Computed example of a mutant assay.
Amino acid sequence: LVQSNKPIALNCGSFGGTNGDANNNLDLGFDQIVPIENIRNKDTDETKYIFVRGYGIDLTERPLLVAHEDNTEVFINEISTTTLNAGQYLAI
């Protein structure tokens, strides 16, 4: 959970990182973290963020979700799977 008093861009990722066996599953993955204001529906106060799976193997195609707010519901294929509090994470 990053806070700033000025506009910033925050990127994360790795070159040759892996979620599994480093000998066989190296991956390139970089993302720009989207500010919560950009995904919040101003009419309903609802937020939605969508991950799309790549063509890699299961071991490397694992999104890491970090909750920004308490009681964040996580859905997989439109089915509620868990609820996270701010700072908690889930690797899918």
Rank of each mutant, 00 (worst) to 15 (best):
G16F: 07
I33C: 09
T72C: 12
A9C: 09
G56H: 02
G13F: 07
Y55Q: 11
G87C: 02
Q88C: 04
E78D: 15
I76C: 10
T44M: 08
Y89V: 07
V74C: 05
E78L: 03
R40M: 15
H68R: 04
L26M: 11
G54D: 10
F30R: 01
R40L: 14
T83A: 08
Q88D: 14
L10Q: 03
E37I: 13
E46I: 05
E61K: 01
Y89P: 00
F15M: 10
T81H: 10
T81C: 13
F75S: 11
A22Y: 06
N77F: 11
D21R: 00
Q3V: 13
G56I: 10
N77A: 08
H68M: 12
L84V: 03
I76A: 09
T82N: 11
S80K: 14
G17Y: 03
N71M: 12
A9T: 06
G29S: 12
G87P: 04
D31M: 13
L59F: 10
I39A: 13
V52R: 02
T60N: 15
F75P: 00
E61Y: 01
G87W: 03
I33Q: 05
R40E: 11
R62F: 04
N71Y: 09
E46C: 05
N19F: 11
N38L: 15
E46K: 02
D58Q: 06
G87M: 05
L59V: 12
N25A: 14
Q88V: 03
D31Q: 06
G13W: 03
N19M: 09
K6P: 00
N11K: 01
N23M: 12
E78Q: 07
S14V: 12
T18H: 06
N41P: 01
L65R: 00
I8W: 02
Q3L: 06
P35M: 02
E73C: 08
F51M: 06
L59T: 15
I79M: 04
L64D: 12
A86G: 08
L65K: 00
P35A: 12
A86N: 05
I8V: 15
N24Q: 06
L26I: 07
N11D: 09
T83C: 08
K6D: 09
S4G: 06
L59E: 15
T60E: 13
N23T: 11
V2A: 06
Y49H: 10
V66L: 07
K48C: 12
A91E: 15
S14E: 09
Q32F: 05
I50K: 02
T18K: 00
D45R: 04
S4A: 14
N71E: 15
N85I: 09
G17W: 03
G29P: 00
T81W: 07
D27R: 01
Y55N: 14
Q32T: 10
L84M: 09
F15E: 15
N11W: 14
